[in-house]
């Protein structure tokens, strides 16, 4: 039995198929260097429409603030898609045949990014799975939040050690069009003492009308959940130069989105009878993914903020402090 989710394509005749969105997402956190790796394969539009697109992204934050990697965009007909796998010519994510692991491959030497990664769940139980209204449609989210990482990763010719790397995987799917007044804030942070924290909430593009947040903290094999009224997520935003914007063609026609107001720091507090914590995250560098809907005019902007974090927590009456690395997604 696999703890990994399956893609959720629309049925033939589904009147909402044009708004179909579906993706597998993998983050790899490298605590020693403070680097964050992002590999994402996504589907946009009705699979039988020749305008529908498969988009693959492989990006890594670098020490100098730059981002290594690139984007591949292809038609569905030029991709291979299975129930738990998406293959492009230079990127792929697939659940292994035995359902026990996620296999991500990136072959983009021209962009300085090559990877052959196996990610295995470390939690014994199934991960998060929920759906919510989202714009004109809805969005689903399932997560396998704590993964061991093995394999090979080469960035700009440097072989990266993965012994202490940790991974996060989620699957999003649903129906909406890029360019609608919908957005989200999502973060994943990996810290010492085997701690992983995940937070997410939907919002509008201006981030005025925020939905109740979802937060959980994993410590070893123990998962702590929090009710919305137990959570406070806040940040200090300022105009921020994005270091890399992809794909370049869309970046060229949206020059006004090059330096958006983005969180410089994020504070996440949660307080329940069994767990209380405060996480402080400082943004080091930002990459921006521009997503244009293939079915109608409109675009969304996903800002990936990478940086370091600090945690003070009391879990089951035990005081903990930890440091780590994380990513915060601020979408407009």
């Amino acid at each position: 039995m696999t703890r990994f989710d399956t893609l959720r394509p629309p049925a033939i005749g589904d009147p909402t198929a044009a708004a179909y969105k579906d993706w597998f997402h993998l983050n790899i956190f490298l605590p020693e260097s403070g680097r964050v790796v992002l590999i994402n394969l996504s589907l946009h539009g009705a699979p039988w429409d020749n305008r529908a697109r498969v988009v693959g992204v492989a990006l890594t934050s670098a020490a100098d603030g730059d981002w290594i990697g690139g984007v591949e965009v292809a038609a569905f007909a030029d991709s291979t898609i299975d129930t738990q796998a998406i293959f492009l010519s230079t990127l792929s994510i697939a659940v292994t045949r035995d359902g026990a692991a996620l296999h991500a491959r990136v072959a983009r030497p021209g962009d300085g990014f090559e990877a052959d990664i196996v990610a295995r769940p470390l939690l014994p139980a199934a991960g998060l799975d929920l759906t919510a209204a989202f714009g004109s449609g809805w969005i689903g989210w399932s997560a396998v939040p704590v993964l061991s990482i093995s394999g090979t990763l080469t960035l700009d010719g440097e072989v990266i050690a993965l012994e202490n790397a940790r991974g996060y995987h989620d699957h999003n799917w649903g129906r909406w069009f890029w360019g609608e007044d919908v957005a989200w804030e999502w973060g994943a942070w990996v810290l010492g003492d085997d701690i992983t924290i995940v937070a997410a909430r939907g919002t509008d593009k201006a981030h005025f009308n925020r939905q109740p947040p979802h937060v959980f903290l994993v410590h070893g094999s123990r998962v702590y959940g929090f009710m919305p009224n137990q959570i406070a997520l806040s940040y200090q935003a300022a105009p921020t130069r994005t270091m890399r914007r992809l794909p370049g063609s869309l970046a060229a026609i949206y020059p006004d989105r090059r330096s958006p107001d983005l969180p410089q720091s994020v504070t996440l507090r949660a307080d329940s009878p069994m767990a209380r914590f405060e996480l402080e995250f400082e943004t080091s560098t930002v990459a921006q993914l521009l997503l244009s809907d293939p079915m109608r005019p409109g675009a969304g902007f996903i800002n990936e903020l990478a940086g370091r974090c600090r945690l003070a927590a009391t879990l089951d009456h035990r005081l903990l402090r930890a440091e780590g690395v994380g990513v915060f997604e601020y979408v407009e």
């Binding site: 962009d111 914007r245 794909p247 370049g248 060229a252 020059p255």
Partner: peptide, 11 residues
């Protein structure tokens, strides 16, 4: 090429 690959901004 640099623009298409996101290695340079138009500005």
């Amino acid at each position: 090429t640099a623009l298409l690959l996101g290695y340079m901004e138009v500005s």
